[in-house]
Design a protein around this nucleic acid. Structure first.
Lengths: 208, 208
DNA sequence: TGTACATCAGTGAACGCGCGTTCACTGATGTAC
DNA sequence: TGTACATCAGTGAACGCGCGTTCACTGATGTAC
């Protein structure tokens, strides 16, 4: 990736520069290889142009490195989703926009998405922190659903249950698009439109 | 697991007995550890009470072993889903039953489900075969949707698109229940009911 | 202005580990004569 | 009925690999006097 030689040693107070470079290289490796298993300490070092032990000057261990990447990704994800609320005044349309943005983010950052949501087991110690970040994003969706319910746009269902349903439906498309690229998918936009529309129609039916 | 000593060498024509034992041990290891990465050739051998090279008398390589397990799981999965059609005459209820059965299978066989649908990359050469098995199961769902449409139970949507939507919605619940056990899930039955009902109501709306 | 010294950002080499796989073999089982 | 032999189910030991991590170190950078 990055030529392994380019890097010069940082100046005295600038040790943290390497930290940023390591994070960026890890992100790029994840995106390029599309496989968390290929993102080894050694591969990251090689791409930064540095030796393995130097990682440990900046991260406690490999988990801490991966976690830092994911935590950034989670924040970016939540930001993208929250931005949807600014793009419309119609709470129903806002939910639809969120759906599209969700799937799009996953498809564009498949390996980060995989780590965030398709991970096996927990990322041990940091697990709780990661879950908290996830709960914040999830609660934003619950609020968006509540706004739709308050506006009378959908039936007065339990917003948490409805949000869970919407989330799982969006995740289903996203994760399968990532995992099974060989499946004869319909056009992605068409699929997302259909699922969002069906989901929202199902939440609206019997009402206004 | 199985005591590593119990096994006696097979009789002359009974070499295939070991094959069955290996498959069964692999399945149990997957279920118990809940982690494909922990299912190594060595772990399987240890659990069967046999040495590593003997695996290669029965399987070309590790991929072939894992593939054999998955292929069995896929067949069992499809069978469970198809059985739902026998349990009712109402095509809409049949779809609902399929949904419940789908999620239940995944939750009860998380690691097989993970390998079948949450796998990273393809399982190389066998990939095509696996995809074919998946397509057969998927086409069964398409037919179930078509029956519902023909009976007038849902709007005359494109059955492939509708089936894809249903599949992704069921997969979304299943895979997240597997990946994120720490999330404060609502009662699983309630969730599945809600998502199935919403999905089907969305497909019915505007129609009878 | 010059020099001794502490600090800091990294390095080089090695550790132990478990993995999939291969190779030459062993020894019980059944068969041919 | 007895024995030589081919076959088959497995073994024991080793291979090379890449991994995360640790340890003692180096040498440039800045600071104190």
């Amino acid at each position: 990736v990055t030529p392994a030689e380019a890097r010069a040693r940082a100046r005295r107070g600038d040790g943290d520069l390497l930290r940023a470079e390591i994070l960026s290289a890890t992100r790029h490796l994840l995106a390029e290889t599309g496989d968390e298993d290929q993102v080894s300490i050694r591969a990251v070092c090689n791409s930064v142009g540095v030796t393995p032990p130097s990682i440990y000057l900046h991260f406690a261990d490999k988990d801490a490195l991966i976690y830092a990447v994911c935590s950034d990704a989670f924040a970016a994800f939540d930001e993208v989703l929250e931005a949807c609320d600014e793009r419309t005044d119609d709470p129903l349309e806002a939910l639809q926009l969120r759906g599209h943005a969700y799937v799009q983010f996953g498809v564009e950052h498949p390996e980060e998405y995989r780590i965030l949501f398709m991970n096996k087991q927990a990322r041990s110690k940091e697990h709780t922190t990661e879950l908290v970040a996830g709960m914040i994003a999830f609660n934003h969706l619950v609020e968006a659903v509540r706004r739709a319910a308050d506006a009378g746009a959908i039936r007065p269902v339990d917003p948490v249950l409805a949000a869970t349903g919407i989330w799982t439906a969006m995740h289903g498309m996203t994760s399968l698009l990532i995992s099974m690229p060989a499946f004869p998918w319909p056009d992605v936009e068409t699929l997302v439109d259909h699922v969002c529309a069906t989901q929202l129609r199902g939440l609206t039916e019997g009402h206004s």
